[in-house]
Design a protein around this nucleic acid. Structure first.
Lengths: 205, 205, 205, 205
DNA sequence: AATGAATGAGGCTTCATTCAT
DNA sequence: CATGAATGAAGCCTCATTCAT
């Protein structure tokens, strides 16, 4: 990569960062290109040298971030000796990633959890597909865990739903409280509860 | 209530219904007042006789629907002999309500799950407060269940998170698939899995 | 037509008139919608209640004017006892129409004589087709004149070209001189010259 | 001229050629400097080293082409033994020039026939003056022809109008049909008809 | 109360032009 | 001279809101 190309990439990244900042604060519709430009310390026109329009800037910003996280959480799902270990790893790494990128995950949840009204901006089908694939990998681990006797012989799809739901729900909880501090013990408790279930254990005589 | 008042209320409800229809299809920002007016078979001006502005129309529509559901799910959480029964009731009733109002819940999840960018439209703090209260009631039932020996002696806050998360996540799954049909067995399996947990049961030989 | 419809039509016509004024002075590209709105004593938004966009406003304005002229010159081409009479009538009526609508014909010649770069604004193919049809009617009259022995037995297509060319050229000449006054004698001379040709008549001593 | 100067001139000519290409395809307003630069295989900045701005580039391109044609058609108007011969020569040479430069004449007619809305770009008054002068030369030839008994003793200004009008009109006709092929016989017929006029000749018994 | 035309602020986008390298 | 990224003024268009009827 030439120096010129490197610099251009740097500028593009600067704009993406500014976009993340502004979009995460105001949301897509209440953020203006002028605001993103100001945040990036560029003029509006410059944004259009890098991105075709607002929708595309938004979409590229989302992809850029997703691409940063994907390898991290992918690796986490592959690290550990047993399926349970890998899933545990994955679970806590998901929290790591969220806490490392609080701004982005304000947007992420708005986009991925809510239904998609807008077919121009927002996650592309391609990104959604990648998420689905991820969920299948996760399901695969659960399945392996079932076979290994670590997990109960129940629907792995349901496990994925509960697992993801619990994760998202707790992140949403934290996001609603701007003063929330990370509580790793709570994360562990959550994971344990997922494993053990709500029900009181039988005969603990 | 006079005839005049009754008619006015009817017209207002007609507009709210139209708003639900249009907002759920297009989302707040891509829906126009003109579109809502057309759907309601009124003119734009009339909308402004009933609602101060678009934000307020949106907010009132959300409240109107929430007010419809609240007694239903509130009652469900009070119906049953044991905490577990009441929670089970509550769980399935939540699904009932979602399946009875698919349009609204497209919006609901967009609003409640995503973070709130917009302080004008969307759920008001008051509605959020009511939701929180509800969760506390739910937590209360879990607590009662713990004391009654039905639930494990673990954090009831975590149980609420897992419970709500699983519910939301499964609804989101269904919403992403427009051809999805309701599967009550799956709902039951989900509930059972919440109770029993993912982990394989220790050798109960 | 209801009163409301009549008034709407009036307003639309007012806007078209303003558009004619502004476009004829500045040309399509140097005229702004804001300027047309000001001329029409409306706000910009109102223009868009009547016309989808700038291109369409321009096109509709052209059509509106063309539709006003067409019956006049069509009738002229049908008035007179012989083909020569009718063509003479047509010729002078064309001048009448131009002198009655100097503003519009600044645009008209820009659009119709120049080549069309812009496929959105400008004369639509439909209007061009109508012009072509008109030229065929004119050719028909020439043909009739040939058969009647009034015109030389030469290519009527060429006659049409010379006829139209002479007309356009003299109008352009006049348009270039903003102080030009109409000179009906010159128009007659021009017509006579078209009939008699440039060449000296053979010695009819 | 030094090598440096020669090279500079060459580059300037390259840009003018590119400008002709692009402007003739898209028209002044729909062509961008970036497009001209790409066509010229230079960067935009370089264009501004040679031309002050877009308007001037356009004007210089027009002048450059006009300067190329002028000597050719000037010479044609001076070649021939009689006024009629010279005018005939001129007439056909005008067609030669048009057929040799179809691209340019798309612009030429748009600029010269239409009225000038734009006082920055387009033909400068100076070029228009030169055109007028040319028409006066032509008129002079007609006058000489009248005196020589070759032309009828009628207004030479009218003859010029008809002559130029016929020429322009037939070129426009051809430009509207992109598949048109040159038809020299038609050109001759046109010229003959100009001379003889439309009217049937009186009894040549 | 209902209407719907008029309003105009606000946002997106383009592109001629500049200037540091 | 050549480059091409940066600039920002300018223009089109939308749509929530108002108000005279």
């Amino acid at each position: 990569m030439t120096r010129r190309e490197r610099e251009a990439l740097q500028r593009k990244t600067d704009i993406l960062q500014a976009a993340e900042e502004v979009f995460s604060q105001k949301g897509f519709h209440y953020a203006s290109m002028e605001e993103v430009a100001r945040q990036a310390e560029f003029s509006v026109g410059t944004l259009y040298n890098f991105f075709k329009n607002k929708d595309e800037l938004y979409a590229e910003m989302l992809h850029w971030k997703v691409d940063l996280f994907e390898p991290i959480i992918k690796k986490a799902l592959q690290t550990g000796d047993t399926p349970l270990d890998r899933i545990r790893n994955f679970f806590f790494t998901r929290f790591d990633v969220v806490w490392d990128n609080p701004k982005f995950f304000r947007i992420y949840y708005h986009e991925s959890m809510g239904t998609h009204y807008d077919h121009k901006a927002g996650f592309t089908p391609e990104v959604m597909k990648r998420y689905e694939l991820f969920m299948e990998h996760l399901a695969g681990e659960f399945r392996a865990g079932v076979e290994a006797g670590q997990f109960a012989d129940k629907s792995v799809e349901m496990m994925v739903i509960i697992f993801e739901g619990a994760l998202h729900q707790s992140v949403l909880r934290l996001q609603r409280n701007p003063n929330a501090k990370r509580d790793k013990q709570a994360e562990k408790d959550l994971f344990d509860l997922l494993l053990s279930g709500f029900a009181a254990k039988p005969n603990n005589n």
